[in-house]
């Protein structure tokens, strides 16, 4: 559907813009996350999903199969052994897909950045990251703010229009 629309409309017009807005609203309003909790940040991710700070309020349902997830929240230290698996699971996700890097270890290798011989220095070396949430571990509110930042980014996207 999307391809033929793009071909048929030579210039961006109001219809395509409205469809874009609809798609962006839908994708931002239901960011099903692939729970990729690797280490301590996983606890904070679970805390964010727990009743106190409820991630499901934003429509973010946890899915365990990568094919049904939109957002991969990489929470925790990515070791070199795990890095190949992270890449594989990222490739199994269906487009459009996004990655939130949660915590210092996933952002840059964290406290292991200097001497950690077994740690991947930042998950953005294997998958493209959209939002970096800093913290060691980040508070659940910080993770939610990261999710809101991702929603903002999704809403700026233009799936059908040509302008960037």
């Amino acid at each position: 559907m999307a391809v033929s629309l793009v071909n048929r409309f030579e210039q961006d017009n109001i219809i395509v813009e409205q469809i874009d807005n609809l798609l962006n609203w839908a994708r931002a309003g239901s960011p099903w996350y692939f729970q990729f909790g690797l280490a301590c940040c996983a606890i904070e991710m679970m805390a964010a999903a727990a009743p106190r700070y409820d991630l499901e309020r934003f429509g973010a349902m946890p899915r365990s199969s990568p094919r049904q997830a939109d957002v991969m929240i990489v929470a925790g230290t990515v070791t070199l052994k795990m890095a190949t698996r992270v890449k594989r699971l990222y490739e199994q996700m269906a487009n459009p897909k996004y990655v939130i890097s949660m915590g210092s270890c996933a952002n840059s290798g964290g406290p292991y950045w200097q001497y950690g011989y077994h740690v991947l220095k930042g998950v953005d070396l294997v998958v493209p990251v959209d939002v970096y949430v800093p913290g060691c571990p980040p508070r659940p509110e910080a993770l939610m703010q990261g999710l809101l930042e991702l929603q903002k980014k999704i809403k700026e996207d233009t799936p059908l229009r040509r302008v960037s």
């Binding site: 994708r27 429509g59 939109d70 459009p96």
Partner: peptide
């Protein structure tokens, strides 16, 4: 939103 998103997935 869920339904529209699922329709637009790869």
């Amino acid at each position: 939103a869920d339904a529209v998103k699922l329709l637009g997935k790869e």
